[in-house]
Every structure is written in structure tokens, then in C-alpha cells.
Amino acid sequence: MELLSFGDQGWGDEMFRAAFTTLLLSVSAMLLGLLIGTLGAAAKLANSLALRAVGGTYTTIVRGIPELLIIYLLFFGGSGAAMSVARVFGYTGYIELNAFAIGTLAIGFISGAYSTEVLRGAFLAVPRGQIEAAKACGMSGLLLFRRIMFPQVARYALPGIGNVWQLTLKDTALISVTGLVEIMRQANVAAGSTRSPFIFFLAAAVIYLALTTASNQGFHRAENWAGRGVRRPAAGTT
């Protein structure tokens, strides 16, 4: 147990900092994923056949290929891609992308595919009559989005987004293969130097469990809050 204490003797503070990195990586990847997801959902719902094909290919490929393979692609290929872009602008030096940036890109790219599907479903759940009514009231596209679409899409998407968040949080463990010191990597290092792998991987499991449980509760509250104006059948009638 003293292995997990804080201070010079134990690994408690290192694990705590690693947990913070995991959380930061998950949040930034989730936000990037939501941005990609919004664009992806717009593409999949577009009139243009080309845009729909792009959206469909993206979600099919990302959801059908292992996350680890996508991470390797960006880990080994990310710097190369950045360098060839830089070469166009006349810079020929070596560029190394930071591990956190690669992690955010890779996990965000994966998370975005799932967010695309969630947001697409939520968008389709808004009754068409409301959109027609808003147009009939003379709302412009932007006003219609802000007043009618956004509040409702956000509410319908919330449970699905909660699931995507859980996936994203757990997927960040895979970023440990790139050397970024998040929970798994830190547990691995500590396990190697103390020869107590069981304790550290168990500690990692407990931290993940705490993070997923706490965020689950948070999403539950958010769902209740977002649905506070929605009429539901009284308890016991269904």
C-alpha cells in the first residue's frame, strides 16, 4: 500500500497527475470529436451525394477498424504528414508532433465517428413540422438553428453523447502505446520499477472506474436537467 502513497516514496502523486492527463486528453478528444461529429452529421444529412459518401466512408472505416491501428497510423504517420505540409512552405527540418496532440487527434478522430451517428439521429428526431413552423414564422436559417434545432438536438443527443464519452475515456488508455504519460503508461512505468504490476494495474482500474462512474452520474443529472420541461407519463401508468 505504501507504494501508492504520495510524496517521494510512493507513486500516488504520479498516478494522480497521470489521471489528470487522461482526463485532459479525454476532454480535448471529446471536444474535437463533437466538432468532427457535427460536420460529419451535416455531411451525412446533406443533399449532395458526394458529401454523403464522404460522411458514410468516414464512419464505416473508423467504426470498422481497430482503434489501435488508427493510433499507429497517426503516431507513425502524423509527423511525416506534418513535415510534408511544411515542405510545401519551404521548411525542410524535422518536426515531431507532441504525444498529447497525436493522442487528441487520434482519439478525437475515432470519437467523432460515433458522435456523427449520435448527432445525426438526434437531428432527425426533431419533428419536421417544427422546422416548417419556424420557417413560416419567418425565422432565418441561423435563428432557426439557435432557437429550434440546437436546444432540441442537444437534448436528444445527450444520452448518446454520454455513451460516446465513456468510449472516449476508455480509448485514451490505448494512447499509452505512444509513450504519453497517462494512467496506463504511468502504471506500466511504476509496475516495471517496483515489480508490483498487480497493484499498479489494479490502481489504474480503480481510477478508470471512478472516472466512468462519476461522469455517468454527471450525465444522468444533465439528462434530468435538460428534460425538466418534458411531459412524461406519471409513474405507474405505463
Binding site: K170, D171, A173, L174, S176, M184, A187, N188, A191, R195, S196, P197, F198, I199, F201, L202, A204, A205, Y208, L209, T212, T213
Partner: peptide, 23 residues
């Protein structure tokens, strides 16, 4: 179900392969 759905598969693999060997 709670434990196995709430933790990443990677942790589970490492616990079983590296962790149990500690004892």
C-alpha cells in the same frame, strides 16, 4: 458487469497477463 464495462480492456489484459504473475 459494472467493473468490466467501466474499465478499459487494456487494463484488464495487463492485470491478467502482467498483474497475476506478481504472485
Amino acid at each position: 458487469v459494472f467493473v468490466f464495462r467501466g474499465t478499459p480492456l487494456l487494463v484488464q489484459i495487463f492485470l491478467i497477463y502482467f498483474g497475476l504473475a506478481q504472485f
